[in-house]
Design a protein around this nucleic acid. Structure first.
Length: 506
RNA sequence: CGGGGCGUGGCGCAGCCUGGUAGCGCAUCUGCUUUGGGAGCAGAGGGUCGCAGGUUCGAAUCCUGCCGCCCCGACCA
């Protein structure tokens, strides 16, 4: 068997980035599109990733004092109408339920029994949770109220993409109510930091935490904060948001409390969300031309053992050896839990197994065959160095180093992504001409090094933000981490107090 | 919703211009030989050619309408 330069995914990123993205998803069996426009079927491998993200987040939500609850999928139309900006922001993307029955007419099932009041399928739950909060909160002693819900939501998208933008998606939405603005604002930043931590430290996706500009705020929010990630094609991905809603929603839903003086006040509320979009971000951050690459902390399996069996007579001994190796590795721990090991017992060719796991992105693949048993060895390869030569290591060596190896892969993926982002972030663009030239040089759907972020001083005027539209660029965020001093706005030349990240985005 | 492209076995495609009853590669199944960097041979199964009309003796192929997918915009997490 000659060494092959064939990539496991066709086309490569360089040939057709958008098509590559879809083939990675197909190749790793993560998801597929469904008969329902814009909706996806999440397959076990993709769902396992989401579950691992969920697990990590849920733990942090609870550690930061939140409780899970569940609210209805259907929201009465009049709830949505309560908050003006919210109405405007979501009206165009809502699925509406208008009937409660089907009847056979001319051989076809036809909606019947019109609802007196139509319902919308939740695009987010501010309004219906607000309704509940207004009933739960009476006194300052009831505050803060900190609730999270894991749910599905629906937004009728014009242009869906698997994971990144589907009409129905899974997410968590946190909703909290506080007695005063400071406490609410602190909550908003605390949860933004939780997002940063999970996304960077578990998913190994580097992000920039920052404030959203006026034009990019959540409908109805006073302030929106975001973590922005850069995909391999240089586009930005909003990967989690946290909103200070002021008293907009509490006024609309009548969420009031009596303070210590006995006066009635409206609560200050927050909401924050992150979704299955993160899995799309994971793909576009770490996957390569051989498929997915998973950071060990969220990988469904850390190690897959592929038995190499030459003859039937060797089957039992090799399998016994494989199980023995698995047991030795499971006795080790990584990230405060036993190392997750799978022995691939499928009755297919060993090479096919190997490439299957390469495409699925498992961090470590071990091949064990008859030759290894005597020496107590295995052929070791790591996904982030999959084109390197396999090493033959003893099980003792592998077991002894497995924890360190997995952390090494975790940090390698993170460092590679940071380097990629750094190489595609321009900080030397200081005037409009250079700014326009930079973004005009980009040609549509290309995978190249020309895109990426421009970090520059910005005056924050809404006129200048609106002017970005024709370039196809937006203000991704105003980073929390700001340099000293002031500068001149890259767009207008006016004095600017803060720097912003500009980019094309998903 | 505008502009462009595309819908043919699970995946990737050819055939369409010039109508004659569907083919290739991979995958799947069976058998034998194989297996440590993407195995070989032999055989087999699987498609109402996106849907609905129309033209025609005959439609994957021509015409009309619709649906869906992808890319670029607009909109958005």
């Amino acid at each position: 068997m000659a060494k092959s330069n064939k990539t496991a995914i066709t086309p490569t990123r360089d040939q057709d980035y958008a098509e590559w993205y879809q083939q990675v998803i197909r190749g790793a069996e993560m998801a597929e599109s469904s008969p329902v426009r814009g909706c996806m079927v999440i397959r076990p491998w993709g769902y396992a990733l989401w579950e691992n993200v969920q697990k990590a987040m849920d733990k942090r939500f609870k550690e930061t004092g939140h409780e899970n609850a569940y609210f209805p999928l259907l929201i009465p139309l009049r709830f949505i109408e309560k908050e003006a900006a919210h109405v405007e922001g979501f009206a165009k993307e809502m699925a509406v339920v208008t009937h409660h029955r089907l009847e056979m007419q001319d051989g076809k099932l036809t909606p019947a029994g019109p609802l007196e009041e139509p319902m919308v399928i939740r695009p987010t739950s501010e309004t219906i949770i607000g309704e509940a909060f207004s009933g739960w909160i009476r006194s300052y002693r009831d505050l803060p109220l900190k609730i999270n819900q894991w749910a599905n939501v629906m937004r009728w998208e014009m242009r869906p993409r698997l994971w990144l933008r589907t009409s129905e998606f899974l997410w968590q939405e946190g909703h909290t109510a506080h007695a005063d603005e400071n406490e609410a604002r602190e909550e908003v930043l605390t949860m933004l930091e939780v997002y940063r931590e999970i996304v960077e430290e578990h998913m190994a996706i580097p992000v920039i935490p920052g404030a959203k500009s006026e034009g990019e705020r959540f409908p109805g929010a006073v302030d929106t904060f975001t973590i922005e990630a850069m995909m391999q094609d240089g586009k930005a991905l909003q990967s989690g948001t946290s909103h200070y809603l002021g008293q907009n929603f509490s006024t609309a839903a009548n969420i009031r409390f009596q303070n210590e003086e006995g006066d009635w006040e409206f609560c200050h509320t927050t909401s924050w969300g992150s979704s299955t979009r993160l899995i799309g971000g994971l793909i576009m951050t770490h996957a390569d031309d051989d498929g997915l690459r998973l950071p060990p902390r969220i990988a469904p399996d850390h190690v897959v053992i592929v038995p190499i069996i030459r003859e039937d007579s060797q089957h039992d001994t090799v399998m016994a050896y494989a199980e023995d190796v698995a047991a030795k590795l499971r006795a080790q721990s990584f990230d405060d839990a036993p190392v997750k090991v799978r022995v691939d017992t499928r009755k297919i060719q060993s090479q096919e197994k190997r490439w299957d796991w390469v495409r699925k992105g498992v961090p470590i693949i071990l091949e064990v065959g008859p030759r290894d048993i005597e020496e107590g060895k295995a052929a070791f390869s790591r996904r982030d160095q999959i084109r390197e030569k396999k090493q033959f290591l003893t099980i003792a060596e592998i077991a002894g180093e497995i924890e360190e190896l997995l952390w090494g892969i975790q940090s390698t993926l993170f460092e590679e992504a940071k380097a990629w982002r750094a190489a595609r972030t321009r900080e030397d663009i200081t005037d409009l001409k250079a700014f326009e030239d930079h973004f005009n040089a980009l040609k549509g759907n290309t995978f190249n090094a020309d895109g990426g972020f421009v970090k520059a001083w910005w005056c924050e005027s809404s006129e200048s933000e609106a002017s970005l539209k024709e370039l196809g660029v937006s203000v991704r965020c105003i980073p929390l981490d700001q340099p000293e001093g002031e500068g001149k706005c890259v767009l207008t030349g006016a004095p600017a107090h803060r720097m912003a990240i500009f980019a094309k985005s998903y």
